[in-house]
């Protein structure tokens, strides 16, 4: 399979997964599981961005200003994971699906921009973004504590 075809396949699967909010039981998910679901969507969007944009290693690459969206998009994705907005989204599944599509788009922009500057950079920037999303599950909008 060509990298591009693989990327399009991953993107299609991720877009299908973004429809999860239309399932009835979805609203019961605790925040931390929600973050993990979002991390999965981000990972899908990021992989798609890498494989669809993939260029030959060691090639000259593109303009360094591609780095600006590559760094700003993950920040916007973290803001889009804002936990207290969940009440609204739980009541409005279609709004929630739009939020998921936004996350996928931001992830795609992140890695596609990074790869446009230099082959391989998408893996690192995308990896850092997925790390942030997974790490968010441990304490962004939720406190575990030990009974204090």
């Amino acid at each position: 399979m060509k990298p591009r075809t693989f990327g399009i396949l991953v993107l299609a699967l991720t877009l299908v997964a973004a429809l999860v909010p239309f399932l009835d039981r979805h609203a019961e998910l605790p925040i931390w599981q929600h973050h993990l679901l979002h991390a999965g969507l981000l990972a899908g969007g990021a992989l798609a961005g890498i494989f669809i944009t993939a260029r030959a290693r060691g090639s000259q690459g593109g303009n360094a200003f591609w780095l600006v969206p590559a760094l700003l998009a993950p920040m916007m994705a973290m803001f889009a994971m804002w936990p207290s907005a969940y009440n609204y989204f739980e009541a409005h599944p279609s709004g929630h699906v739009l939020e998921h599509l936004l996350l996928i788009a931001l992830a795609y922009i992140t890695t596609a921009s990074a790869e446009s500057y230099a082959a391989g950079l998408g893996w690192i920037v995308g990896g850092a973004m997925v790390f942030m999303a997974v790490a968010a599950a441990r304490g962004f909008g939720v406190s575990f504590g030990n009974g204090g």
Binding site: S143, G145, N146, G148
Partner: peptide, 10 residues
């Protein structure tokens, strides 16, 4: 001796 005092944790 010392230990941190944190909210939410003992």
């Amino acid at each position: 001796a010392q230990v941190q005092a944190m909210p939410d944790y003992i």
